[in-house]
Simulated assay, not measured.
Amino acid sequence: MKNLSFRIVDPKTRAFAVMSSKTGVRKRSLAAIKTLVTDRFDEFQLFRGRLNEVEAISLTEDSKKALEHCYSSPTEALKAIKEEMKRSLKEQYGQIALRCSYCQVRDPSCWDHYLPLSRFPEFSVFPPNLLYVCSVCNTKKGDLVQEDKKRFLHAYFDNLGDSSLVIAVISFHSNVVEISFDTHPDIQGLSPLHAAVCEHFEFFDLKNLYLRKAKEYLSSILQPMQKYKSGNLSYREYLRIIEVEKSRIPVNSGKNDWKLITIDAMETHASEVIRFVNSCPMAPAPSLAPIDGWEY
């Protein structure tokens, strides 16, 4: 989980450019509610750190359909917004491939309306309400709203700071390696935002997603260790391997990147890992405990 910077200049003007490209009845319907929509854009900006508090409003059926059509019907103005947002994300991720704005692990392939299109059509083409996400997260979130509490983090506006939000624990049982992820105990119950981090982590099942990725990654590190250093791996050699792995993780991945969290856990549990690798010199590469039908 990491913050992204929203870099679209004058998003209200960009949204109205899409609306003004409509014709006929839709154009007239949109012109009639322009002041209302402008006020809603201002409300979005005002509540950007607590968008779960934004309430839906009543709109006529014609207005709702016209607003939804702004997104469902391709226009050059909307295409330009999406392309500019993609370019901005590529600049921020740098050498890292683009990632879903919700799980920040899988590749993004579609756009999600943070405030659902079905309930908040006035934000259908408002750039701050559009997030580039993966199909899995998009389907899971669907049209859910957050009336009772904040359940989804907004990558642009929920300031997570630079604190550790997620931790990993590594343990060894016989020839099986186990790793688990959870939100950091120090943040639980601290503030509404931290509570939202826990909700987000649980809702998008990041615990198991990180686990699946970490198992493959752990195997790629532990197998060579056990093959070439088993019985003779020193603490110094181990730390050097960890430092090399850490240096391969781009700085802009963020402090709560699953791979960096995994490496931090390997550093924290250094003695146990070394003992495990050295305990069975002729043993085959370690197996990893299966989860939810996903195994090696």
Rank of each mutant, 00 (worst) to 15 (best):
F152T: 00
R119A: 11
S101Y: 04
D143F: 05
L131S: 05
Q95P: 10
P127F: 09
P127D: 07
N159E: 12
G94M: 10
S109N: 10
L98C: 12
L193R: 05
V105H: 07
C110D: 15
L130D: 01
Y156T: 04
H173E: 14
V136S: 12
Y114M: 00
H154I: 01
I170Y: 04
L130H: 09
V176Y: 05
H194Q: 12
S109A: 14
K149S: 12
E91F: 14
D107P: 09
D162E: 13
C103S: 02
A168S: 14
Y156F: 12
D162Y: 09
N138C: 13
D148Y: 13
K149P: 01
N175Y: 05
F172I: 14
Y93G: 06
K140D: 06
V145R: 10
K140P: 01
Y114T: 02
S101A: 14
I96R: 14
G189F: 04
F181H: 03
V176K: 10
L115C: 03
N138H: 15
L190H: 11
L165T: 02
Y93E: 07
L117S: 03
E147Q: 13
A97Y: 13
S118I: 11
E178I: 11
V145L: 08
S164E: 11
D148T: 15
I187V: 10
L160W: 03
Q92M: 14
E178K: 15
D186I: 09
E178M: 14
F126Q: 05
I96K: 11
V176M: 11
E147I: 06
C100A: 04
L165M: 06
H113K: 09
I167P: 02
V133S: 02
F152Q: 03
A97P: 09
L160V: 04
L130V: 11
S135T: 10
Y93I: 09
V133R: 02
A168Y: 09
S163L: 08
S163H: 07
T183N: 00
T139E: 11
N159T: 05
S118F: 10
E147C: 10
Y114E: 04
F172V: 13
E178R: 15
N138Y: 11
C137R: 01
L131I: 13
S174H: 12
P116N: 10
S163V: 10
C103V: 01
A168F: 05
G161K: 04
S135Q: 11
Q104T: 06
N138D: 15
D158G: 00
D158E: 03
Y114R: 01
R99N: 01
S164H: 09
I187M: 04
L117W: 04
F123P: 02
D182S: 14
R151A: 08
K150Q: 15
E147A: 13
F181E: 03
D162M: 08
D162Q: 13
Q95S: 13
F120L: 08
L98E: 15
H184E: 07
K149C: 07
Q188I: 15
F181T: 02
I167Q: 11
H194W: 06
V166M: 01
